[in-house]
Design a protein around this nucleic acid. Structure first.
Lengths: 180, 180
DNA sequence: CTAGAATCGGAACAAGCGTTCCGCTTGGAA
DNA sequence: TTCCAAGCGGAACGCTTGTTCCGATTCTAG
């Protein structure tokens, strides 16, 4: 790969991350190209389609979250670890518009694209199970309910632009519902 | 107003309700016209813009929900009344795509358009206050948190298509968080 | 340094959208 | 029944997308 092409790829990824975080999925390719200082053709040389580009962004973000989840899964206190991760994801979604969009609109595609490489779902499930064994989360809470609540808070936090105060107090209510 | 025009208006409203419920805000005007069996020009005779049409639909739905809220606000048991209304709104959002879209995207416009005619916010606040006085909802829950949770569950329920089982179990967790 | 291949930029294309417009149709008062 | 204005349908317009394409440019092996 030529050196300049590699430099441009990095620029494109950086610009895409920023623009998609700000404007969400509806951001035009031209805007990403403009911010990266390249032509649209340059983007299409690396990514066959718009979806491929934002999937690369989302997959990377999911990968990082999976790493955080795995890091927390061996924490001494399973309860705080679980709730900290939940809050972390919501905080992330508040600032990054793509992520919440991806959770809903392209959820299935992204899930399919990331299956096999790493296992964020499994990492979350470990956090949940450990917290339940430590009696910090009610036993009848399953993965479907947990993912539903995660999606719900992420979507609303992003769409309405929850400030930190509202995010904290609202999550406190949800966490109270999860606790025994 | 001519008789046929009146008939067409009714058809348009009915078709718009159905199409917007199914496809959300992104539904094209042509699709609504097609389903109503009229030309697009006929819709534009009654509604100056697409936004005006779906606002008419959303405003009507909010009006009906406000009526339900007011009806419940004199119920004998404030706790069940409050939670029943919450579940009712989420159930509604699950089936009607426009509504959740409206909660987020055009929330401010809709709020402005409906201000004065009726007071859904006030009706909800009454339900909350009564439930709190009856010690069925924790005192530190405010309207911002309540609306945040309502929006969150509505958005996720619609985007992910929660079935009745998931909706019930997830709301149970949220309700547990709201209870003292 | 040079040639040739890799890469780039952005005009051009196709598709889908909201909205406008106008020739034709039709309801209903006279 | 007649007549004309109110109403209709849907082609056409303008705009914004994602995507393609090719002449111009730039890198780098030899």
């Amino acid at each position: 790969m030529r050196a300049d092409a590699q430099r441009n790829l990095a620029r494109v990824l950086e610009a895409a991350e920023e623009v998609l975080a700000r404007d969400g999925l509806s951001a035009p390719m031209r805007e990403i190209a403009r911010q990266a200082g390249v032509g649209v053709g340059t983007i299409y040389r690396q990514f066959p389609t718009k979806e491929a580009l934002y999937q690369a962004i989302v997959v990377d973000r999911k990968r990082r979250l999976a790493e955080e989840a795995r890091a927390l899964s061996t924490a001494a206190e399973p309860g705080p670890a679980f709730f900290a991760f939940f809050a972390r994801v919501v905080e992330d979604a508040t600032a990054k518009k793509v992520f919440a969009d991806a959770l809903s609109e392209a959820g299935i595609d992204v899930k399919a694209a990331t299956a096999g490489t790493y296992d964020i779902r499994g990492a979350i499930e470990t956090l949940l199970t450990r917290a339940q064994r430590a009696d910090q989360v009610r036993a009848e809470v399953g993965m479907p309910e947990l993912l539903a609540l995660l999606t719900a808070t992420c979507l609303a936090a992003q769409h309405q632009g929850w400030d930190e105060r509202l995010r904290t107090s609202t999550l406190e209510i949800v966490f109270n519902g999860l606790r025994p």
